[in-house]
Design a protein around this nucleic acid. Structure first.
Lengths: 333, 333
DNA sequence: CTGAAAGCGCTAACAC
DNA sequence: GTGTTAGCGCTTTCAG
């Protein structure tokens, strides 16, 4: 008794005593149609509980009425990093009132990104916003779609639309702040080196260090998780006890770094200055609260959504869009 | 340079020098097809980068290759309650290796469930798992779909398939534990009264109280959020200071109740015994750790997924499936 | 084993 | 304004 067989447009037309074309017109609100016909159709629709079949409609209009936020990360990552909820929220905002539904897709730990890719490339949605991709392969594959795609974060592939913050500049700002606080030996915990955000924040760090006549060789690679940040910071601090300041490429990792410092008997900010990145919720929940670089996933994703909407409407949005990011000074540095 | 026009099956067939029917056969792995033909088609597919168009395929097979997890809650709820990630994980598990993609859909705070409903009823997916629905309207609407649906939690509408725990029994067990610990005046913070889980856990509480010859009238309604739990508990405890034990219908709310107790200068478990529900992560992160009732969202959703899979394969799974739930004793009672 | 042909449910010219 | 007619890209009998 669950699934019933759905009425078709033909059924509606017949019940309303009009042609299928006319029925289609009133359902889609296309202008020229007489009152009586329209009323008859509408009555038939509610009576039969008619719902247009998207598959059939999509076949001719090439429009499904849904876009997808593709997050090529495992679901535990997605649900444990506050970046993603905020980003998804932004995407939702962009499509609010457009009648376009926003789906979320992430990957199964063991499946990799294959199924997600196959899904999107089968044109089951009208377009995609891609968040947090690693490497360029995924970006390239997604971009081969017949549907428009906008990336949050530089995909590293020329010609693809994206929104981002200026990682190099922001990281340099963060580093300079450490310098201005009198830090003498500064290290950094980076993001993954297969992500632009990871690479560029490191570049900004090194750039600022070089400009100050320092060497930027105290580097440990993290993976944007709490545990990864803790491990990287622990490594760095135990091998180089002279380090008195750390630029950590994300707040989640920075909170891990605080833990690492504690384990080594060092206190933030007294024995160790710390600047994070993202200004995520944890930045204010940490003890001490994190000095960090602003990075608004919601704005990023909302902007990406707006760009996608442009594309869906046949316009070509300017790209890239680079959002400003400011230093937010709290307790950790 | 983004969207290119996708090659069709016709293109493939032409390139391979076979008919569209044969091309279709090798792509779908239908048995009878000669080696040379198959090879030619496969070569053409990779050469052209051909991807079957789901819309067209779905029109005839009535299969999209994707199901959706419908969560008629706003995204901030979904991302802040650990129930959902675990449930989504379970759903993912159920469809692992099936080639069926699992999408996630939640609602925009201002839109309500309309768009989600419209999306699902347009048959854009092969079926749905519904988690955390309020009231019966949503369940009824969803169930009117031509596609199969399985609910996590009793939808309260006869004839619909669902998985659940025995809320009444579990709540009674929790309450009896409080009783056995010598609690004299026991109150409860409930879930929302428009959700079966809310209503039935209250029923179980009252039942256990009645059986023990107590009155179960000290009730405050919560909403399954931290803040709601804190407010409800605060209310209850400040109006009825004689309360020395609380059954709180979810761990998230129970952690709020601890906060409320603290504000009133009462300590758990010394001045107040507390039993939660869900055995969620926070149960062990709270101070003190929560005594609670087991409730595994992952198993619930995985089971729902398996039932959905059955339905997709034309079988009718047994329903309801009621999962066992045990008492987990920790520090709070 | 393979091709021809019909048709899934819908929209979009095109006539009337 | 409205009906007729083609398809959209694909699977699936049905012949051969």
């Amino acid at each position: 008794m669950s699934e019933r067989i759905a009425p078709t447009l033909d059924d509606v037309a017949r019940a309303a005593g009009v042609s299928r074309a006319t029925a289609s017109r009133v359902i889609n609100g296309v202008v020229p149609v007489s009152r009586p016909a329209a009323d008859a159709v509408r009555k038939a629709v509610t009576m039969l509980g008619y719902r247009p079949n998207v598959a059939a409609r999509a076949l001719v209009t090439r429009r499904v009425g849904a876009v997808v936020v593709l997050v090529p990360e495992t679901e535990d990552r997605v649900f444990s990093d506050p970046f993603f909820p905020r980003a998804y929220h932004g995407a939702l905002e962009a499509f609010h009132h457009t009648g376009i539904h926003v789906l979320l897709s992430m990957s199964h730990p063991q499946d990799g990104v294959g199924p997600m890719l196959a899904f999107f490339l089968s044109d089951a949605t009208d377009g995609a916003i891609v968040i947090s991709h690693h490497g360029q392969d995924f970006a390239r594959s997604v971009a081969a779609s017949s549907r428009p795609v906008v990336f949050v974060g530089n995909p590293g592939v020329p010609g693809l639309a994206y929104v981002d913050v200026d990682h190099v500049h922001s990281a340099a700002t963060a580093t300079r702040h450490l310098l201005s606080r009198g830090a003498t030996v500064i290290g950094t915990v980076t993001g993954p080196m297969d992500m632009t955000a990871g690479v560029e924040r490191l570049r900004g760090f090194r750039q600022a260090m070089a400009q100050a006549g320092r060497s930027g060789h105290l580097v440990a690679e993290g993976d944007f998780t709490f545990a990864g940040g803790e491990a990287a910071a622990f490594d760095l601090l135990s091998h180089h006890p002279q380090i008195d300041a750390l630029f950590v490429a994300s707040d989640l990792m920075a909170s891990g770094a605080i833990r690492a410092a504690e384990r080594l008997g060092r206190r933030v900010p007294d024995d160790l200055l710390l600047v994070g990145f993202d200004d995520s919720l944890i930045a204010t929940q940490c003890i001490p609260q994190l000095t960090t670089m602003e990075n608004r996933p919601d704005v990023l994703a909302r902007t990406a959504g707006q760009m996608l909407l442009e594309k869906l409407n046949g316009r070509e949005p300017e790209s890239p869009v680079i959002l400003p990011s400011g230093l937010i000074i709290r307790e950790s540095a």
